[in-house]
Design a binder for these strands. Structure first.
Lengths: 233, 233
DNA sequence: CTCCTCCAATTGGTTGGACCACTGGACCTT
DNA sequence: AAGGTCCAGTGGTCCAACCAATTGGAGGAG
């Protein structure tokens, strides 16, 4: 039981809860990826209702500090629960172009390789990913995972361990840019269309078309007018 | 009754509510300062629980898009409920130094004038403001209002309509910088100490000391390492 | 008639408890 | 060992109250 978790006084309850959570993370030495205590337990220890705890959770989620997994718990996305300073955001934005360059180079090649080497199983995996994305969109979700899944399927089909490994290194950054991109209204559906074009070319066994389709897809990811704040939500 | 407010489907409810609110603001042509419908009414019209509406409210509040007034309603802080783009944040940050210059010039002079002209009533008002700030800090609040109140009391004591008017013009920007400054851990208490120094000099009738104390106070407001995101919260 | 006081309706703030949906691991079946 | 099933844990949402701040108007004082 941490010293930093004890009953609290009134005003703006959810803010105080958030503040306590910040302290708790520091005190317990929690880091990105670690799980926060369950909401009910927090409510008990802080002597507030779960409603208030959840408001704090929402606040932290909107700030991109934690990730909420239905049925799985709440997880830290950073080492501290402090709002990300502007500089960091900016530097991330500045790095975006070069990340996209690298991604473009790798994925374009991977797509064309996939068009040459894909097996029936690969095509099935790609279709499954597309289906997952379609239903996610219908449910109004961001479908970050589904998007990633599609690209993973293409990478698998390409059978290029080196390029796959390279993409693995880029994955962290890519996921972030992906998220920001998908947050744009209508973007998920648009992204799906582009995925389908890529899949079509791969199925047709047309390397050039696959490369071209993937190229324009990656390019369009860069057209994030101005990344809004919340990386998640 | 707006077309944009009608029942909605499932996942991530509070996000959908927030999205609907965004639409509603556009549809109704609401602008900064306008009031949103009451939470209970929103819950009814969207066919969602008030709990979910409140989560959306928290999300929007954290993003600095709305202001919540206990018992008074929820108000728009901008013309649209879109997260503020980086550019805007940056330009605001770039303007901060010049705003502080102006503030420094005016408030330094006001403090010295206050030291010369303050009446017993002025001193009482200043003390009251300090007391309010103390208790606000004890309650763990940001005490933006209390901070403002103190400066208002000093301005009143200075009896300089022109300078007071000038400060009035700056007030909007000042409040924002104040907020960002006070968000820093330990900052409110620090600020209180500086206020007390200023008050002391004014009480002593020492214009030079008052000016100096106010000067260093205003300067320290500029030492916002890196304004965090949430303008409120 | 004007102004002030005071109260009640309105509106946000918080709670406790209930129930649903998803996840992950224990455990059983094959 | 592989697979499927089940269930406890955990997030998601709702509801019905009650508390607290604000606001505006009724009603009284001047």
């Amino acid at each position: 039981m941490s010293e930093s978790l004890r009953p609290l006084a009134r005003p703006r309850l959810y803010e105080q809860v958030a503040a306590r959570l910040r302290e708790h993370v520091v005190d317990q030495g929690l880091r990105a990826g670690d799980r926060l205590p369950p909401e009910r337990e927090l409510a008990d220890r802080l002597e507030v209702s779960r409603t208030s705890v959840r408001q704090a959770i929402v606040a932290l989620e909107v700030q991109g500090l934690i990730e909420v997994r239905h049925g799985g718990g709440n997880y830290l996305l950073r080492d501290r629960l402090e709002a990300e300073p502007l500089e960091s955001l900016l530097s991330r934005k500045r790095r975006l172009p070069e990340i996209l360059e690298a991604r473009d180079a790798a994925e374009t090649k991977l797509a064309s390789l996939a068009a040459e080497r894909r097996t029936a199983a690969d095509l099935a995996a790609i279709d499954t990913a597309l289906d997952a994305m379609r239903s996610a969109i219908e449910r109004g979700e961001l479908c970050v995972d589904e998007d990633e899944r599609f690209h993973g399927a293409v990478i698998a089909a390409a059978r290029s361990p080196l390029l796959a490994d390279f993409m693995g290194h880029l994955s962290r950054e890519i996921t972030e840019s992906r998220r920001e991109s998908l947050r744009q209204p209508g973007r998920p559906a648009n992204s799906l269309l582009q995925h389908e074009k890529v899949a079509e070319a791969i199925r047709a066994g047309d390397p050039a078309a696959a490369a071209e389709a993937m190229h324009s897809h990656v390019q369009s990811v860069g057209d994030v007018k101005l990344l809004n704040w919340a990386p998640d939500a």
